[in-house]
Amino acid sequence: MDEQADNSDLGALASPGHAADAAVATAADVSDVELVSRAGAGDEPAFEELFNRHRRRVSLIAGRFFRQREQIEEIVQESFMKAYFALPDFANGQENSFASWIARIAFNACYDELRRLKRRPEGAASGDISEEEEAWLKSQLRSAGAGADVEAAAIARDLADKLLARLSPEDRLLLVMLDVEGMSVAEIGASNKWSISKVKVRAHRARASLRRVLERFV
């Protein structure tokens, strides 16, 4: 019964026609906060609109940590499912931005998955670095512009994954947040519910861990 109602609502939103166009236009105009309150009240198209607005961002966050398409999709589904059941928390909490809230959920989902993989015996064992990769890494470290042409090298992708697999999930999460997402210390603190000093200390340790991993090849 409910499913039929849901389908009819979705159909009304997606089907061609003046009323449907008007509904889509209305849904596109309203803010995330308004959509959250509607979705929390059981408005299915409102949640779908939220999903469509933020699916790309969540996919990109998952792609920062995982290579396989199934893993990325798993993180996307997990994040939005958690968000769906936690919508009342968002509505009652101090959150102002749904985008930052869903990003935080996605980062947490990635962190949980990294920890899960690390616990598994096959996940804990990071791939061995080949002689070719080791030689390339040494040449990079010897050159004055170390890291300058890393992004252009095809060899770097696999090697980067192998090296980062040797870090702890916490260190990896923090380094991605800092160096890839460009998040500030305050933003990371708010995201992980850590104090600013804790973020600084952890960032320092994460960089030291990565340096130690690289030093083995110097």
């Binding site: 699916r55 790309r56 969540v58 996919s59 990109l60 998952a62 792609g63 920062r64 940590f65 995982f66 290579r67 396989q68 398409r69 990325i72 999709e73 996307v76 890494l137 990079q140 470290l141 170390a146 890291g147 300058a148 890393v150 992004e151 770097a156 992708r157 090697l159 980067a160 994954d161 090296l163 980062l164 380094l175 991605v176 160096d179 890839v180 960089r207 990565l210 340096r211 690289l214 030093e215 110097v218």
Partner: peptide, 27 residues
């Protein structure tokens, strides 16, 4: 130490940005 630091940052970026196409496809 500075070189290691630069290379480390570059490696993190490469690993994170290598899958953008896959992520876009999922989205």
């Amino acid at each position: 130490s500075e070189r290691l630091e630069r290379l480390g940052r570059a490696i993190v970026r490469v690993s994170a940005e290598a899958n953008e196409a896959e992520a876009e496809a999922v989205a």
